[in-house]
Design a protein around this nucleic acid. Structure first.
Lengths: 189, 189
DNA sequence: TCCTGACTGTACCTTTCAGTACACAGAGAG
DNA sequence: CTCTCTGTGTACTGAAAGGTACAGTCAGGA
């Protein structure tokens, strides 16, 4: 038997793309073995809980990425200038991560329909921590009036832009919404 | 055998709820027979093309509803006042239809992931006709500058509000976004 | 060196899947 | 009454689903 040792960490991003493209129910083990190149033996070695554990690992991985790359920087910028810089960085990173709307938000997609129930805690946490970190940065950047509300508006805009960009198969839909949101956050370049 | 004659038109809304809750891949025939109360015989009598034809019928039904209840009224209001009235009606009907974000947008959900490919034409048409009808009404209501852009912004907001409201399990998220969009369309009540 | 334990492929299990076949029920037309 | 045509339930199919069992493979440590 050819032995090519794999690591759990290498598999998770592949699983993420599969769940993004096919959803939880549509991601069959046959598809997963084909795309990861791993047999069921290896798969169940790394994820004894099966598909459910795979999806949970993917969500945790995504959550970790956003925590590191988005939320932490948002919380970091202490003065108004630092806050504005981290806000600008957020929009740049979000555009790159979602590939201008070509890549869907797995956590948003899982929030729709019955999949939500299985992963409610992580879904809720993901959006809540994002909104709070963003609201803090907005407040420090000078939006004293209603930063929590504006933060909600931004998250709604991002999620909606992903849906509409995919529906229309047009990246510009996403980019235009990002420009509107940037402007609303006082980031006219 | 008990004979309770069903009509295709009565089944479609039930199918719609099933697809909304479980997605295309997750909606099994077993689930469908249970929820509709119809055996496979009847189901395949009405929809010889199976699940795919059921989903297509559902999407066509939804599309027809929006055409009748939303797009036609939007196109109807001829003067500024009529346009403003139809805009207000749109927000009221959208809030009712999506049950303040408790009910997801099936067409938006199908746009994410591989399901889109099967129904690309109807998905694209749904959003495009909505945006054009809305842009016309906005223009007549006095938004001469960029009505097509504002219409896109509204659709993005509605879709995003559904995602975030479901993720957070909170109708108020949806209602707040509707209030923002109304204001942006010049409809302060 | 051999032993241990992490990893891997394959054969197999039960259940469920979408879909088919077909006999039958019943209402309306003649 | 009978004939026809639209529905309906049920038994069935082969394929695919998720998951288990297990023998085997190799690297690293003792």
């Amino acid at each position: 038997m050819a032995r090519e040792v794999a690591e759990r960490a290498d598999i998770v991003p592949v699983l993420a793309e599969i769940f993004r493209e096919h959803g939880f129910a549509g991601a069959s083990l046959a598809l997963i073995t084909a795309r990861t190149g791993l047999g069921k033996g290896s798969l169940y070695h790394f994820f004894p809980g099966g598909k459910e554990e795979m999806a949970a690992a993917v969500l945790a991985d995504i959550d970790g990425w956003f925590e590191r790359e988005i939320y932490v920087p948002l919380r970091a910028g202490e003065d108004a200038d630092g806050a504005r810089t981290s806000l600008a960085a957020m929009f740049t990173n979000v555009d790159a991560y979602f590939r201008s709307g070509r890549r869907s938000c797995l956590i948003g997609a899982f929030a729709l329909g019955d999949t939500r129930g299985r992963f409610a805690v992580i879904i809720d946490g993901y959006f809540w921590r994002w909104q709070m970190a963003l609201a803090g940065a907005l407040a420090r950047a000078g939006h004293a009036s209603s930063p929590v509300d504006l933060a909600e508006e931004v998250l709604v805009g991002i999620q909606g832009a992903i849906v509409l960009a995919q529906a229309r198969d047009d990246e510009d839909v996403f980019r235009r919404e990002m420009a509107r949101l940037r402007a609303r956050c006082g980031l006219m370049a």
